[in-house]
Design a binder for these strands. Structure first.
Lengths: 168, 168
DNA sequence: TATATTTGTCAAAACTTATTGAAACTTCCG
DNA sequence: CGGAAGTTTCAATAAGTTTTGACAAATATA
């Protein structure tokens, strides 16, 4: 395959995968495009390359900036804003993990913590079972939270070292 | 809050959270309902409690069985099929992790492996950058794959022990 | 200040995914 | 076999999500 074709393919593929990851197609595509681009791109260039509307490009770029995956770049002499993506995959992964933790785990913990406060007769079998289930979910999500928080705040070397540790 | 109300609340909450987790609302709700129910429930009971159609209940129950989260139970003397959920949260988590790995990571690895095969002039800066990015994604997803595979096939104690190991 | 260029907003349209409901199928039992 | 009880399928529909595009707001230029 030719390089440009391969890049295109990457952008398409990343877009499809994004949907599996709870990330909108456009968001994943723009990210892929910027990831593959040595130089920052303007909103117009993004629109053109992906055939998307200005509104979409604008909103999605903002989202990407909020996630911390993309940065605004000002070129001297140019009035337009340009955008470039974080190129270090480990940093990218951390960003995504952080966002997904927020959406998926933190929300769940909040909900479960509420449920753990339900009071009832401890002799009631039903109640006991309920509390038991809730408590064990709480405990488990606590562990995952601890782990993820650690990963999200660590560097690549720590991760790789830990990986080795776990297999010895 | 009263116990039944709390259970209801749990079912609703789990349903909402499910959508964040790439699991359909109904699927998450049925799972929650069965998780909270001491006895197996029939299709009809599930339909009634969640106000969903027979078709939906049936298909979703099948999905849950395929995921390994729910089991068919035959009661002697009854013709109907009953369903009960895996109650051990660690097993539940492993099931979900397994499915999500398949959807999210395995597909990505397949796509990336293809891209890594693109050939080009190693002196071309663009090409070098492309390969570099692809290779690092490949390496990273390989590590995550190894880790997840290990977790999915381990028991709870291993997980907790490892957790402690990582913080010492 | 007027004009040109770029960026941001939002209601409506397009698209995607989930759910329904009725019909088809299967199984069990007299 | 005939039909009652239960299960599965799937085209139609509803619900939810993403994307568009025209316009408003902001910012620079003359």
């Amino acid at each position: 395959m030719e390089l440009e074709a391969a890049k295109d393919h990457f952008v398409q593929t990343w877009g499809t995968l994004g949907t599996n990851w709870g990330i909108s197609r456009t968001m994943a595509q723009i990210h892929a495009l910027l990831l593959m681009s040595p130089d920052p791109l303007s909103t117009e260039e993004v629109m053109d390359k992906l055939h998307i509307s200005r509104g979409n490009a604008n909103m999605t770029l903002r989202d990407l900036i909020n996630w911390g995956l993309v940065q605004k770049v000002i070129k001297t002499g140019e009035r337009k804003e340009f955008f470039s993506a974080e190129k270090d995959i480990w940093e990218v992964a951390k960003c995504i993990a952080r966002e997904r933790k927020r959406r998926e785990l933190d929300q769940m913990k909040k909900a479960i913590d509420q449920l753990a406060e339900v009071t009832g007769d401890p002799k009631d079998k039903n109640y006991a079972a309920f509390i038991d289930t809730v408590k064990s979910i709480q405990q488990f999500s606590g562990s995952v939270d601890t782990l993820l928080t650690k990963v999200i705040n660590s560097d690549k070397n720590w991760f790789l070292k830990s990986l080795i540790k776990l297999f010895t």
